Amino acid sequence: MSDLSTDNLFTAAARCLTETDPERKRTLAQQLATNWQAGRLSADAERAEPVTQSAGLPARLALVPPRQLVARKLSSRDGRAAMIHAVAHIEFNAINLACDAVQRFRDLPPAFYSDWIRVAAEEAEHFGLMGERLRDLGYDYGDFPAHNGLWEMAQRTAHDPLTRMALVPRVLEARGLDVTPGMIERFQAADDSETAARLGIILRDEVGHVAAGSRWLRTLCQERGLEPSSHFFRLLDDYMTGDIRGPLNLTDRRRAGFDAEELERLERLCQR
């Protein structure tokens, strides 16, 4: 029997979401994908446990406001480990975000669940890559403080899958497309080609994750009779007061489903 001990998709996703042990969460995310692909999970909302509002994090992880996080130079082992830990934390939270999208939004097509189950499994792989690198340097997940901005946005968008698709994959996760190439260069300059290579894997996969957000933004807008780009920028203004940081990674954002008009408008917001 699967360790998930359930044949219900929503319950299985919720169990992965609420798991606090990092290695256990990785295993549950991978099993979720395996069982869904094998047809062993039913998307029967009536038989599922209620939607959970909480996400599992290790008890030893200290969460602080972003302004309390100290920037460190990559010239030291501690500095490299702190940066790797920050990426690991993003990937851990990304498992939670993908599982939450599955367990929370229960009236969507099977393709929606296939996309976000795949994303959860890939984020688990990314967390494993960064966690392993942390241990190579003598550290582990939870050895540095972190902030909870990704999950806070998940809570703010919990009422609506369209709003979630617009603001989590296409804003917060898309920011990773912008900053990761620079991180890769910095690790290469610090003679840490191993970490740089692992970040390259994450960047490659994250293009597909943001693209899934773009796809479902447009699908859900079409169902509601909304123009996708206009609605995206309306949500951006409502939730983030149009606050976008640059520079933008235009090449990968195009691959992730941003059209030319959207990129032009985003660049204007960056300049503002």
Rank of each mutant, 00 (worst) to 15 (best):
I117T: 11
I117H: 02
R118E: 14
R118A: 13
R118K: 08
V119S: 12
V119Q: 15
A120Y: 03
A121V: 01
A121N: 06
E122L: 08
E122V: 05
E123R: 02
E123P: 03
A124R: 04
E125M: 14
E125Q: 15
H126K: 04
H126D: 08
F127K: 09
F127R: 04
F127L: 05
F127D: 09
F127Q: 05
G128W: 03
G128P: 04
G128K: 12
G128I: 03
L129G: 07
G131H: 13
G131D: 15
G131T: 03
E132L: 10
E132P: 01
E132Q: 14
R133V: 05
R133A: 15
R133F: 06
L134E: 11
L134K: 06
L134P: 01
R135I: 00
R135W: 01
R135C: 10
R135T: 12
L137H: 08
L137K: 09
Y139S: 11
Y139C: 04
Y139W: 14
D140M: 09
Y141F: 15
Y141C: 10
G142K: 12
D143E: 12
F144Y: 13
F144C: 05
F144V: 00
P145S: 09
P145Y: 09
A146L: 03
A146H: 07
H147K: 08
G149D: 12
G149F: 07
G149L: 12
L150G: 08
E152L: 15
E152W: 03
E152I: 06
M153T: 06
M153D: 12
A154W: 03
A154L: 11
A154Y: 05
R156K: 15
T157E: 14
T157N: 13
H159N: 08
H159L: 01
H159K: 04
H159Y: 03
